[in-house]
Measured scan of single mutants.
Amino acid sequence: TFTSIVTTNPDFGGFEFYVEAGQQFDDSAYEEAYGVSVPSAVVEEMNAKAAQLKDGEWLNVSHE
């Protein structure tokens, strides 16, 4: 299960995956970082959410 939350205070020191406002979700980078295949429906969902981000916001993507 993939989830996401919007934050204005990303923790770059941890093992977190963020999408910056104005960027798209990079499923290849996510797969490389976590060894998890990302279904195309999830990629579309995360890109739709990322498109709604305002300046200074980040989308924190995770999975269980």
Rank of each mutant, 00 (worst) to 15 (best):
A33S: 08
P39W: 02
W58N: 01
N9M: 11
T7H: 03
E64H: 14
P10G: 01
V61C: 04
D11R: 06
E64V: 15
V38L: 06
Q52Y: 06
Q52F: 08
S40I: 11
W58G: 05
A33E: 07
F15S: 15
V19K: 00
E57K: 01
S28I: 14
G13T: 14
E32F: 10
Y30H: 01
E32G: 08
E20V: 06
L59A: 01
G56R: 04
G14M: 08
A50T: 06
E16A: 13
V42R: 00
V36F: 07
Y30A: 00
E45A: 09
T8A: 08
V43A: 08
S62V: 10
Y30R: 00
G56N: 07
F12P: 06
N47F: 03
E44C: 10
D27I: 15
E20L: 05
S62W: 15
M46S: 02
F15V: 12
G13I: 08
K54L: 09
S62D: 05
E44F: 08
M46I: 15
D11M: 10
E32K: 15
E31F: 15
T7F: 03
A21N: 07
G14Q: 08
L53T: 00
H63T: 04
A48N: 13
L59T: 02
Q52E: 12
A21C: 09
E31G: 08
N47T: 11
G22H: 07
K54I: 08
G22T: 04
F17V: 04
Y34T: 09
S62Y: 13
W58Y: 10
A33M: 15
L53N: 04
D27S: 15
F12C: 08
Q24I: 11
G22Q: 05
A48M: 13
A33R: 15
Y30F: 13
K49D: 07
F25A: 03
Q23N: 09
F15D: 13
L59H: 02
E57F: 05
E44M: 10
V42N: 02
F15A: 13
Y18V: 03
F25W: 03
A29C: 08
G56H: 06
E32P: 02
W58V: 03
S37C: 12
D26E: 05
Y30W: 07
L59F: 00
E31L: 11
F17Y: 09
Q24V: 12
A33W: 13
T3V: 10
H63P: 01
V19W: 01
H63D: 02
T3C: 13
E20C: 08
A21H: 10
E31W: 12
F2N: 04
L53P: 01
D11V: 12
S4H: 07
E32D: 10
V38I: 08
Q23H: 14
V61Q: 01
V36H: 06
Y18T: 01
A21Y: 12
F12H: 10
V36Y: 07
Q52L: 13
V36E: 03
Y34L: 06
T8Y: 08
L59N: 02
A51K: 08
S28E: 12
E20K: 14
Y34N: 06
D55H: 13
E45N: 06
A41W: 15
E32C: 12
V42F: 07
A50D: 07
T7G: 01
N60M: 15
V42C: 07
G35H: 09
A21T: 05
Y18W: 07
F25G: 02
V61L: 04
A50R: 00
M46T: 04
V19F: 02
P39F: 01
I5V: 13
S37M: 11
P10F: 02
F25M: 07
N9W: 08
H63V: 07
G14L: 10
E16Q: 13
T8P: 06
I5A: 11
E31R: 12
F12E: 04
T1C: 14
E32L: 14
G13H: 11
E16D: 12
E45T: 06
S28W: 11
N47A: 06
E57G: 02
V61T: 02
